[in-house]
Amino acid sequence: MTPEELRAETPGFEETIYLNTGASGPSPRRVVEAATDFLAHQEYDAPREEGMYAAADRAYAEAREAVAGLLGSPEESIALTQSTTDGINRIASAIDWEPGDVVVRTDLEHSAGILPWQRLADLHDLEVRVLETRSGRIDPDAYAEAVSDARLVCFSALTWTHGTRLPVRELVEIAHDAGARVLVDAVQMPGQTAMDVTEWGADAVAAAGHKWLLGPWGAGFLQVSEEFLAELEPRSVGYRSVAEPDADTYEFHPGARRLEIGTTNPAPYVGLREAIGTMDSIGYDAIESRIADLTDRLKQGLGEERLLSPREYESGLVTFAVDEPEATVERLENEGVRVRSLPTGAVRASVHAVNTAADIDALLEAL
């Protein structure tokens, strides 16, 4: 498959200059059809064939396998969630917090990496330490000082505010040397770049498929290391969490599945698996090359004075300054161009491989 072919079967790109996949990406027909076809099978055919729970269990298992391939991680390390926020909360709630524990996050985090720690601070004697950054970058010395006595560190692999790629492996090593665990929000990466989370060495990675993968809402995932998993004590439990659901006493599943709970709609996970396969069929070399070319075109058109993201390619997220961000986004929307404003007082365009040079030129002309 080519990016042009994928665009042609994605209705969300037909009548709109859609440059907001960093928030949510419209799904192609094949993804929606995979999900809806499965739903029809489960509700119409499975009751008289393999059974509805058996059909759902197969969908969950196939989704975990696809996510493991996407992340370059063992299947046993994968848990299915509903979103990145859901995944971060499942980790946060499974840690046995003690008075005085320190959580470090950066000032670049999305609400998914902010609200769970604020809530924990309200419930426990917990310190949430916010590391200040500059232009989407972390100063290694300031970071090392901030995490020196931390229990957990949470940061984004690719910043949603600037589109910068953080040196995940280096940051993980610094935190581990200090005795801290590391939870990485990687939601901006799947679908726009190849991944191998085992190279990062993080204790947990949370993401979802509704952005650059162009998957459906409701299909998130967690990757958790074996060592960290052994320390976690899930507060919630259901038949998908345990090794033998019908036993008199329960024992958590040996893999990351212990962080799953009970009955959830399997259709989004079928769509997620299809979305992962679709991006694989294009190839991440082709995807990244196209995104790099398109973002270069946009950055050249914007000019250095407005550009807040790095001039050199790091991702498809391009943030730039305007006088009135919210009014600008509304005006662009009225002209058929979809971008978004940021809490930092800027505007962000998300450039995917399914976009075209004409999309970029339309944005620049509208600006």
Rank of each mutant, 00 (worst) to 15 (best):
L71A: 00
S309V: 05
A366C: 10
V237W: 00
R151M: 14
G113V: 08
A150Q: 05
V102D: 11
L332S: 02
R306Y: 07
E4R: 14
G72Q: 11
A208E: 04
Y60H: 01
T36L: 04
Q192N: 04
W217H: 14
A202M: 05
A206R: 04
Y284T: 02
L214F: 10
E173I: 05
L302Y: 06
P99I: 13
H210P: 02
R105G: 07
H253V: 01
F320A: 09
E312A: 13
L183S: 01
A157D: 02
S241T: 01
A68E: 06
L80R: 05
A112K: 03
D86P: 10
R151Q: 13
N89G: 03
P216I: 00
S315Y: 00
V182L: 02
G179E: 09
S77M: 07
V322N: 02
L363A: 10
A219R: 12
S83Y: 02
M195H: 03
A292Y: 08
G25A: 06
D122T: 15
L108F: 13
V354G: 06
A219V: 09
L364H: 13
A206M: 06
F38Q: 01
T328F: 03
I174N: 03
R58S: 15
G163F: 06
A357V: 05
E4K: 15
E333F: 05
L115H: 15
E312T: 14
A202N: 06
D125S: 08
D149Q: 11
F155E: 02
P74G: 10
Q223R: 11
G51S: 04
A157E: 01
P11A: 07
T264H: 08
G201Y: 09
R7S: 05
S341D: 14
D248A: 08
T133K: 00
G100R: 00
P3D: 10
S27Y: 00
S309K: 01
A55S: 09
V329E: 03
H352C: 06
R58C: 14
G209K: 04
T319K: 09
E132R: 11
Q82G: 14
E15L: 01
D203P: 03
R134A: 14
P234L: 04
P116L: 07
P99Q: 12
S24I: 12
Q118A: 12
T36H: 06
A204M: 07
E333Q: 05
R297M: 11
Q118W: 12
T10R: 03
E365Q: 12
Q118Y: 11
S24H: 04
A243G: 01
E274Q: 05
V130H: 02
E15T: 14
G136K: 07
R64W: 02
Q118D: 15
E260I: 01
D141H: 15
W217M: 10
T198I: 02
E132A: 01
G22S: 13
D122R: 14
H124F: 13
I78A: 01
A357T: 05
D101L: 08
I138C: 00
G255R: 08
Y269S: 00
P47M: 00
S111P: 09
